[in-house]
Write a protein that binds this DNA or RNA. Structure first.
Length: 528
DNA sequence: ATAGGGTTAG
């Protein structure tokens, strides 16, 4: 690039070159590519910078395409080649490609140095392969703040909030000098765990260090929104008054919607032309709150701004109508979508499922599985389908789907899938099969089964009056979670009630009182 | 060349 740039100045004044300049400014990536083609020598370092240029301009396929050519042409590639390629792999979620690139790095001796390894940590965590991420991290000889941050945000990305905080604690112990990136991830972790005290402490650290207040302020707004403290979120926004930007405003708006501060949300929206992005996140808030009326208003705003072809926004609308019981509206939107992604299909299946139409849900699912649909069901899809089957008592179909998930689609069922499947078997009265499943799981996991599984098994025992197994599970659950989880007492108490052991019911109620647990008041989620 | 803030399905 730098070798070519001066020539632009040489020829200013002519109309052709004015055009050239405009193209240059407007489409930097395309121009960079063009200039690159004119280079007499394609030396490795310029090829490497081309790889990252593609990545930066949002073209990971370009990075991989060039990398393949380079790989064919020359066996000598440097670590500067691999880092952008790893970034492209992570973006495209091709775990196999990523592993192959890693293997090639080892073969060429390029899997050394903190920067290369940090790129690997990042890639594996984006695939969800946390174990590999940790292995690479442990092999880093000179761990710097960036590699620590990559590990921290990896845990955060994969929903392991507690582990992420553990990494932060380790950084403190190891006296790593933390950066604003660290603080940012920690704030987000506090938000995901909804831990108010720790979040406030980090807020104090942010104020003390005083760095990058726009980005960290946005994260703080997200944190206060997630713990329901909109007044604090607003305060952060007000304090940074002059330095706010669109991202920050969007964070505040979606926080307002999530917390039902609609007046403020729409007032803030009127400050600037709302983006499709903020409307999409606002719709998610409406879905969570079942607020059809607000959802419709946002739909109107989207129509007025011409966002109806935004696929993510359409998915948000589809989900909102489905969650608010407007199945006809949801179906109409779904049918009109030209590009249906796995999210669209899953939302549509879920819309039927939550509205009690298991048969229709399965019909959509089968259509999705056909060749022509262009998408593959993933683990979320199967969770939705299994819960549809459990809900509607579709036992045979549920068994078939669970089998398909493992055999045809090679997906590994998670705890949530097993919970649904146990529920299905329970509806069929098949506690024998449930028990065989539990025994197999115990064998595989060295007796450690997640509590959620025991909870599902106990419910099955209650429903089917399986006294012996139920009492075993009840005891196990009490040992493992009783002291810290009030809902365990309620669950176990319900089991004893179901089998008619009233003395045990009383004992559970007594224990509940002893611990000072108070039953939360019930409330309806329907907006009148 | 590696890490960070606001979007969609559980």
């Amino acid at each position: 690039m730098s070798a070519r740039l001066p020539r632009l100045g040489d020829v200013t004044g002519k109309s052709t070159n004015l055009f050239y300049r405009i193209v240059f400014l407007r489409n930097f990536a395309a121009h960079a590519d063009h200039v690159f083609d004119e280079l007499p020598q394609r030396d490795l370092s310029s090829l490497n910078s081309q790889l990252s240029s593609y990545l930066r301009s949002g073209n990971p396929n370009g990075t991989l395409g060039l990398f393949h050519k380079m790989h064919r042409a020359s066996p000598d590639l440097s670590s500067h080649t691999f880092t952008p390629v790893l970034g492209a792999c992570a973006l495209l979620s091709y775990p196999e490609t990523g592993r192959q690139v890693h293997a090639l790095m080892i073969k060429q001796g390029a899997e050394t140095g903190t920067i290369s390894k940090t790129a690997l940590i990042n890639m594996y965590s984006k695939y969800g392969y946390l174990a590999d991420s940790v292995t690479v991290f442990e092999s880093v000889e000179d761990k710097d703040v960036v590699s620590w941050n990559a590990l921290l945000s990896g845990f955060l990305r994969n929903g392991k909030g507690k582990e992420a905080l553990g990494v932060f604690a380790a950084m403190y112990r190891e006296r790593v000098e933390i950066s604003e990136f660290t603080l940012c991830s920690v704030v987000k972790t506090c938000a995901s765990l909804k831990i108010l005290q720790q979040g406030k402490q980090v807020h104090a650290m942010v104020v003390v260090t005083g760095r990058d207040l726009v980005v960290l302020g946005t994260a703080m707004i997200g944190f206060y929104s997630s713990v329901g403290l909109m007044s604090e979120a607003m305060k952060v926004y007000m304090i940074l008054n002059v330095h706010t930007d669109e991202v920050m405003l969007n964070s505040l708006i979606s926080g307002c919607i999530r917390n039902r501060n609609y007046k403020e949300a729409f007032l803030l929206m009127s400050r600037q032309r709302p983006s499709a992005r903020v409307l999409t996140s606002s719709l998610a808030g409406c879905s969570d709150n079942s607020d059809l009326w607000i959802g419709k208003q946002i739909h109107c705003v989207a129509l007025r701004n011409g966002f109806v072809s935004d696929s993510k926004l359409c998915n948000g609308l589809l989900d909102m109508y489905g969650k608010c019981g407007q199945i006809v509206q949801a179906r109409t939107l779904f049918s009109a979508m030209p590009c249906k992604s796995v999210v669209s299909w899953t939302s549509m299946i879920d819309a039927y499922a939550v509205n009690g139409d298991g048969v229709k849900a399965l019909e959509i699912f089968r259509e999705m599985c056909e060749e022509g649909s262009g998408v593959l069901p993933n683990s979320v899809t199967f969770l939705v389908v299994l819960s549809a089957c459990a809900h509607a008592g579709l036992v045979e179909e549920g068994k078939e789907c669970f089998g398909m998930m493992k055999e045809k689609y090679r997906l590994v069922p998670g705890t949530e899938h097993y919970v649904c499947f146990i529920d299905i078997l329970s509806k069929a009265g098949d506690t024998e099969e449930i028990w065989r499943l539990v025994e197999r799981m115990m064998e595989k996991s060295d007796q450690n089964i997640p509590c959620a599984i025991w909870v599902a098994v106990l419910s099955a025992c209650s429903l089917n009056m399986d006294v012996t197994r139920g009492e075993y599970v009840a005891r196990r659950l009490m040992e493992e979670t009783g002291p810290v989880n009030s809902s365990t007492y309620v669950l176990v108490s319900n089991f004893y009630a179901a089998i008619g052991k009233w003395d045990m019911v009383e004992e559970m109620r007594g224990k509940l009182k002893e611990k000072g647990f108070v039953k939360a008041a019930g409330h309806s989620s329907v907006i009148v």
